[in-house]
Amino acid sequence: MKSVRNHLSLVIALLSIIFSMQVYLIAERSIEAYRVNLAQNYSVIAVSKKRLEQNEILSINNIISDAKELSPDSVIEKLGSDMKSSNFELLKLTLPKFYKLSLTHYPTPDEVKNLRRDLLKNSSITKVEDFSHTHDKTYKLLLLFKNVVGLFAIVVFVVTVLLITKELKIWQYKHNERMSIMGLFGAALWLRSAILFRLAIVDALIATLLAFGIFTYLASSPLILEQFANIGINIVIFDQVDDLLLILGVAMSISILLASLIVLGHKEEA
């Protein structure tokens, strides 16, 4: 029981930090997935007096990833079926060319402005439709999400620092006496610190295993999966290799840092 209590305080602190970090990662991944989603669905329409080669369009601005010419057939069909086929062909030739431009990523309002300006510099392009009104609204929403996640990260960081400081004080109180007594009998620094580092490493492993269990469960929970499906986002909630290594690294670094600070801050009893 005493041994469990010895481990519990640091394990809980580490678990809170790991949990907050993983939630932050999930939020970041969700926003990134949403951003990719937006980028895939967003495009700019350019109207040209003459046919343009794909390379020519791509060289206008680096943000353009693809350019597809829109078929005029559907528009012409709407004009009426009583038109002669020869007239159809003539109309097709005289109509301006419409291009749907896909972009490498979801652009900022400035990037949209620059793209519009660059496209209109081309003497063949007469009109650009960038859907800027809809874009601005969506972009602001995305920015809001990003800021909320950023704020969350700052709060997590502050809470982490407070938790570590508190834990450091508890550990200093708990371990200083034993380290001093061992010092009185001539124990070398490595021997005095060995228990502390062993405890730190064991606690980091326990916290990592608990976090692994919690997130593996959450990542396969139908309730969580349904929530993500409802908002149309498909992300990796918990990568069992990469995320495990990350949380293990964070937990180990924090506990070893904590133990090192205690060893460095340890004062001999005078």
Partner: peptide, 9 residues
């Protein structure tokens, strides 16, 4: 440390 290993306190 060497000295203290030969002292009992």
């Amino acid at each position: 440390n060497f000295l203290r290993r030969h002292i009992g306190i």
